[in-house]
Design a protein around this nucleic acid. Structure first.
Lengths: 218, 218
DNA sequence: TTATAAAATTAGGTTTGCCTAATTTTATAA
DNA sequence: TTATAAAATTAGGCAAACCTAATTTTATAA
């Protein structure tokens, strides 16, 4: 059984491994993701290596072993299921659920995820558009194309968000963007790749390139 | 904000303070309740005293301060609400819910207990018959009379259980005793205070005095 | 190639929450 | 009252998971 902290590391490593850019997962990348000091990450890399949950190679960085991957996916599964619960049953807002789920995901009990999944009606995606892993670890592919990859003139459906911070979600709320919202790219500014978009055929709005990179489309 | 461990101490002290026997809450009683070493309890008594959550007097033992009481009740509230959730929504068995709720009770987020309470339809009692504290900290009185206090020939309704261990609950399950079950005391054995009872007018069964002390009646 | 910057690691330290063993205090019974 | 048992406390230690500061390794750019 893994500790709370080990689980957070596994989850962070898993998240980084799912990134489309496929960069090497370095000590500093993990430190950054968790808001910890790189020296602490070195400690934990040693620990998780001893537990055979990850493999570490100075050149290639960190990689989850099959068991590490399995453990990580179970945490992600619980996280996403709890998010559905919090939004649908307890009626929390989009921007509130992530932090609560960060705590709930660590609750360990035989069957808990399975029963929760059943109670929620076997949802496929969480409220941020991320696929929910099944009990056997299988999950639908994550959306990977971002609005920043879209073409000028193209119209896209918001399928998921990459950033789940409450700052970003509050901003989306302000712009009235949700999963399923249709966004048309009117223009891209050459200077800084800002996007001029129309939300659900509304009037033109300008958003940054960083914004565009965090909206995933289908 | 209190740590996981501090919360467990507060809860244990609260539970001991609710005991009908009104014994002094000693270092060793707390150690026993938590399965910790008395030396560890001494450490924590110091810490909680510094935080002004308890008062400690060698002679009188430990007592919760108003703030400590408030904090403890909020944990108990969450524990009992989650137990209702686990039983009613996730369909866990009576004897399984306590352990899961021990973890869930520590989840902290603004409003969480209130939303859960609303979602569950404002239950008054948890599945073990213990009253669920309201948001303001008020709660119905716990049942305190036990079957062991009953009279021979008397018939009583099971209102709550004192012991919530899975061993006890599994035993109750085997005897088909639930909240609401009617129990008649047929005879009390003078030697060791064992009870001969009839469950829902079924055939006579013998139970120990310890058993009788853990069934609360109304 | 070499200077510099960035990343990784080591060394040593802190806090939390436990522990054991030894000692002191308090209660109980002969 | 005094011996003994029980309870409480102190002293010292340990593991987990962090940290800072210093150092070493690796990458990057002039």
């Amino acid at each position: 059984m893994n500790t709370f902290s080990e689980e957070n590391y596994l989850k962070a490593i898993f998240r980084l491994s799912q990134m489309p850019d496929n960069k090497k997962i370095s000590t500093s990348a993990i430190a950054e993701a968790l808001g910890n000091n790189p020296a602490s990450v070195v400690d934990m890399i040693r620990k998780l290596t001893d537990k055979q949950l990850i493999e570490y190679d100075k050149k290639k960085g960190v990689k989850l072993t099959p068991q590490g991957q399995k453990d990580a996916i179970q945490i992600v599964r619980k996280h996403r299921l709890w998010e559905v619960f919090l939004l649908e049953k307890l009626e929390y807002r989009w921007d509130e659920i992530h932090d609560i789920a960060e705590e709930l995901e660590h609750i360990k009990y035989h069957d808990l995820a399975d029963r929760l999944e059943k109670f929620l009606g076997f949802p496929e995606y969480d409220p941020h558009g991320d696929p929910i892993p099944k009990a056997n670890g299988k999950m639908a592919k994550s959306f990977s194309a971002s609005l920043a990859d879209g073409k000028v003139g193209g119209s896209y459906r918001v399928a998921a968000v990459r950033d789940t911070s409450s700052e970003f979600l509050k901003y989306l709320h302000k712009l009235q963007i949700n999963i399923g919202t249709q966004i048309k790219i009117i223009e891209q500014i050459a200077f800084d790749h800002s996007l001029i978009i129309s939300i659900d055929n509304g009037e033109a709005t300008t958003v940054s390139s960083k914004f565009g990179e965090n909206i995933l489309i289908s």
